[in-house]
Simulated assay, not measured.
Amino acid sequence: MTDLKVGGVPEHFNYPWYITLKNKEYNEHNINLRWKDYPGGTGQMCKALRDGSVDIAIVLTEGIIKDIADGNPSKIVQTFVETPLIWGIHVGAKSSFNKIEDLEHATIAISRFGSGSHLMAIVNAYNQGWNVQKLKFKVIGNLQGGIDALTTGEADYFMWEHFTTKPLVDHGTFRRINDCPTPWPCFVIAVRNEVLENNFDAVKKVLAIINAETKDFKKIDKIDQTLAKRYEQQLEDIQEWLKITEWNDGQPITKNLITRIQNEMIQFNVIQELKNSEDFIKNMNI
């Protein structure tokens, strides 16, 4: 039996993993796959890939590209979610900020440096024409940390996935000022190099199983109701999310895509130099 640890955010994007694990599909191929939630997001998972506490991670594209460029010994094996992530730009319910222009000199809550909430705050600032060198950040760990920081005034705004935070907007914890979509496919699957060297076939089988699940995921009977209940979402919000979300069916990630994303990240001042895109990816030929 091959032991593998997989991790991701505890959000609706990753429900296909829950289904395949619940059905014990990996065990049938002699793979003992164990899931771990990472509520701290991509920055937390990049650290886990580096220290070996996770083998496979479903991470934000921009975060893992930056971390591999900075020496993370992992490879992107494929895109997981093809469509952009919609980042909500949130302030506390009682905040005096009312429009995006008000936030130029405000303090930004981020889960970690190098996380999606950090990098997308830079992308948003660039889109607004602000000086990205002068952005002020407050590290808050995870979504709960963001809630606490905006409620107490330790930070002024916080960017997190639109639909995950929608209940907080509905309940009056946050106000959403605007949205900022990623300019690229949002989630990729990254695997530690050591695991690719030692368990290549097992990783390939894991990808084949999850891709088969995501291919028909939207056709599952009453999937919208299941997701709404599990993630405490309004049914119409889940239905809207399902409409705009597409998973990859196993197509390999291309060097051209990595190069394009790197070039945009250089433009946004997130990374400093273009690196060989082959160094970021491993084609599994599924």
Rank of each mutant, 00 (worst) to 15 (best):
I261E: 11
T20F: 07
D249M: 04
G88D: 06
H90R: 08
G116W: 00
D201G: 03
Q251H: 13
D102Q: 13
I147T: 02
I220R: 07
Q267G: 14
V77F: 02
E273H: 11
N178S: 07
T165V: 12
Q262P: 09
N127Y: 05
D51T: 13
N27C: 00
I68R: 02
A228F: 06
L85V: 10
L135R: 07
W241Q: 08
I140C: 01
T226F: 03
E82I: 05
H90G: 00
Q144N: 13
N198V: 03
I122S: 02
F280Q: 06
A155G: 06
D156G: 00
I210T: 11
Q234H: 10
Y18M: 12
G172Q: 10
E104T: 14
V91I: 14
I122F: 01
W35N: 10
I210L: 11
R34P: 00
F163I: 11
V6I: 15
T165S: 13
L21A: 10
I31S: 10
K219A: 15
Q44M: 07
I147K: 04
R260P: 00
K218Y: 09
V188G: 03
G40T: 09
L274M: 12
S117Q: 05
L207I: 14
G71D: 11
R230F: 05
I253T: 12
G129D: 08
P252D: 10
I64H: 06
A93E: 13
L21S: 07
I110D: 02
I110A: 02
H90C: 11
L207R: 05
I266M: 13
L257E: 14
E11L: 10
D224S: 15
W160Y: 09
L143I: 12
F268T: 01
W247T: 01
Q128W: 08
I58G: 00
V77N: 04
I261Q: 12
P39S: 09
M120Q: 14
E194R: 01
I261T: 13
I76E: 04
G88K: 05
E62M: 08
E11W: 00
Y157F: 15
D221I: 12
D51W: 06
N30E: 15
T83C: 09
K275F: 06
V206Y: 00
N127H: 11
I281C: 07
Q78E: 11
F137C: 02
L227K: 00
E101M: 10
A109M: 01
I261G: 11
I223L: 11
N276Q: 12
T152N: 15
L274I: 11
W247H: 05
Q44N: 10
G250R: 01
G52P: 05
D221E: 15
F163C: 04
K218Q: 14
H29Q: 08
E240K: 01
L196H: 11
L49T: 12
Y18D: 11
E236P: 02
D67K: 11
Q44Y: 07
K138W: 01
I100E: 05
F97I: 10
V195F: 00
K138C: 03
G41D: 03
T173L: 09
L274F: 07
D224F: 10
I271Y: 03
I122W: 01
F163R: 04
D237Y: 06
G250Y: 00
E246M: 09
